[in-house]
């Protein structure tokens, strides 16, 4: 804690050009433990649910759980919750471009069988 305070203090001395970061926020081990346990529980859940016949919802549930797990890892293990807007924006940019790749490619694959107008 002392050290944290010290580093925050340092910040005010050297005002960087984009003072939006909280890079030296130290996440407590308890948070890691809680998140880690949740992830394990979710893994168990998703494996168990796959044995139940839900029709199409098997895929929906599995991917929803995967998304929750990813969000937890990104926010806590990767510290994005405590990071600057810039980091958040970077992550968002990655997913945005990935979605562009998928959706724009799918415009072709979905409508290829429609034939000519």
């Amino acid at each position: 804690m002392d050290q944290q305070a010290h580093e925050h203090h340092e910040h005010h001395i050297f005002e960087p050009s984009e003072p939006t970061h909280h890079a030296e926020h130290i996440v407590s081990p308890r948070v890691y433990l809680v998140v880690g346990t949740t992830l394990l529980i979710l893994t168990g859940t998703t494996a168990a649910v796959s044995y139940v016949d839900l029709g199409t919802f098997n895929a929906v549930v599995a991917l929803a759980i995967a998304c929750i797990k990813m969000t937890l890892v990104i926010l806590f293990f990767m510290h994005v919750k405590y990071s600057s807007k810039l980091t958040k924006l970077t992550v968002a940019a990655g997913f945005f471009t990935f979605l562009v790749l998928i959706t724009m490619t799918m415009t072709d694959y979905i409508s290829r069988a429609w034939g000519r107008w």
Partner: peptide, 8 residues
């Protein structure tokens, strides 16, 4: 997942 926890 456990290895992610240990790394964190």
């Amino acid at each position: 997942i456990v290895s992610s926890f240990t790394m964190a």
